[in-house]
Write a protein that binds this DNA or RNA. Structure first.
Lengths: 208, 208
DNA sequence: GTTTAATTTAAACGTTTGTTTAATTTTGCG
DNA sequence: CGCAAAATTAAACAAACGTTTAAATTAAAC
């Protein structure tokens, strides 16, 4: 059954996100996935290789979408910014468990291979976003901004709200256990805010 | 010697930030601090209580500074925003190890007490910042914005750049091992970017 | 139906974990 | 000095860790 591999990966994702890589034991994962302890070594080789498999499994398709968005010549720079915000907010909020692992636990992971792998994925996505901004600047629609920090701001805002979920639930009077209600309220809020923010920040007319 | 307590706290901070709470053993900390393993239990009681002591030790003074800034009636809303950015960037970048622990590892910490403690600290600081923005809105200098997300954006940007340090070093062609050079270049960059961003975002004249 | 390979299992492996113990050394005070 | 309290130590503790083993079960192929 191929299902078992996926079961293990799903359980690992959930537990790594909640308790961290080191805070999660192989027994935890096996128990949660309902498989024998030894199956994890049998399928993935080791706990660390399980993490690698998880990352590869989850981060395969993002880059393709960004590339498509970039190539679309029918869209104006402002359109692309809007789509970009939608894309990232949806992706991160809906896969926030995986996003937790990628951002929170990256620095604590000792394996150089894994760190390198994650950095590469991030760098490639970064380049795509930079190209969108650069295009807007070339067309004299966007003003000159610090591109790295502009991207960092968008990513950082989403990450912040995602990682400090319980904090923002308290601030915004949302029940933190109502996963579905949280998304329904939060996603449009973040999208609107980021679009507004970028509009003010990037608009060449707001030069100061 | 009181020094030994501080030694242990410093080592714990460094190692928790680098390897995470669960990724750091009490033996690691004792070894790094140059003290006997049993001293940690002797002084702090347990590994978890050591973390509590660390948090209490580091997060004592921030709130006072924010309160002072808020009360200062000689400063305009824009002045306060500038000072706020300076304050936060300096604080986070210079204490980025502690900041790592507070943001990255908070969700993975199982103890409800500690989580509650950290959330409380963050909430209090949050309220102070919101009051600054609210004051600017009352004085018709700032426009109406989503306050929670505006604060989230500032915090998120700094956190993003701080946590993904190695990524931003690669992006900005800074040697990631040159700690001092990194700060010298990065701190003014982040400050300038955030001030510019907030100027565009908050200015009542940029209504759209 | 027999044989071979793939899967699944319980048990055990040697380490490492956080914490405690009990003995020893250092310190502060009369 | 003498002596009690505090600090420090090496050793041991049981529990949990990631991984391996070798036997048992299931699936696939001929």
């Amino acid at each position: 059954m191929k299902d078992k591999r996926v079961h293990i990966l799903d359980s690992a994702e959930l537990l790594f996100a909640e308790k961290g890589f080191d805070g999660t034991s192989v027994r935890d994962i096996a128990g949660h996935a309902g498989v024998n302890l030894a199956m994890i070594s049998y399928y993935f080789g080791s706990k660390e290789k399980l993490l690698v498999a998880l990352i590869a499994h989850r981060s395969s398709y993002t880059h393709g979408i960004l590339e498509e968005l970039n190539k679309d010549e029918k869209l104006s720079p402002w359109d692309k910014i809007e789509r970009l915000v939608d894309l990232y907010v949806d992706k991160i909020v809906n896969n926030y468990k995986f996003h937790c692992i990628m951002t929170m636990h990256l620095p604590t992971i000792q394996s150089d291979d894994i760190r390198e792998m994650i950095t590469d994925i991030k760098l490639k996505n970064f380049e795509q976003v930079k190209r969108i901004i650069a295009e807007g600047q070339k067309k004299k629609v966007f003003r000159k901004v610090d591109m790295e920090l502009t991207v960092g701001c968008v990513m950082g805002t989403i990450t912040q709200v995602t990682l400090s979920k319980s904090l923002y639930c308290r601030l915004m009077h949302i029940d933190k256990n109502d996963e579905e209600g949280y998304r329904k309220k939060m996603i449009p809020k973040i999208k609107a805010h980021l679009k507004e923010l970028l509009k003010a920040h990037l608009d060449i007319k707001n030069q100061n």
